[in-house]
């Protein structure tokens, strides 16, 4: 009889279709996928946005330090003397005289690049806000 039950089941289910979801099911899935992709891209961008100013300020600080370091008239100061904080040898910092040796040129160019990048970021940051303000006043 079991064989018959199996046969009856197959007969009853012949032509039976599976249930179907709502008409806009596919559209909803594709919209969710699109918004997930957008959120993932925004998260990546927001991570950079969050740290970009810290990154720029750090690089600016490093480039200023390099300018001061390479422009020292006392050329026999080594990096180890600086780390030792020997005040006699660090007196050059007070004078801040610039000597255009190769190291100084490199750090100056580096500073100019960093400042330019930070200016572009600042413009990018402030322009939408200014536009928004203008829009509100209109």
């Amino acid at each position: 009889m079991e064989d018959h039950t199996e046969k009856y089941m197959k007969e009853l289910f012949k032509g039976i279709k599976s249930d179907s979801p709502s008409k806009n099911f596919t559209v909803n899935v594709m919209n969710k996928i699109a918004s997930e992709k957008k959120t993932a891209a925004e998260t990546k961008l927001s991570f950079f946005n969050q740290y970009k100013f810290i990154f720029i300020f750090s690089l600016t600080f490093i480039s200023i330090f390099l300018i001061i370091f390479f422009s020292a008239d006392n050329q026999d100061i080594t990096i180890f003397d600086t780390i030792n904080f020997d005040f006699n040898k660090l007196a050059f910092v007070e004078k801040l005289r610039l000597y255009f040796n190769s190291g100084n040129q490199f750090s100056s160019i580096f500073l100019i690049i960093i400042v330019s990048i930070s200016m572009l970021f600042s413009i990018d940051y402030f322009i939408p806000k200014i536009r928004k303000l203008n829009h509100l006043t209109i």
Binding site: K17, D19, P21, F25, T26, V29, M30
Partner: peptide, 13 residues
Amino acid sequence: YKYLVEKHKNMIF
């Protein structure tokens, strides 16, 4: 992916 959703949505549901 739309094609795959369209094809399998009934059985998944």
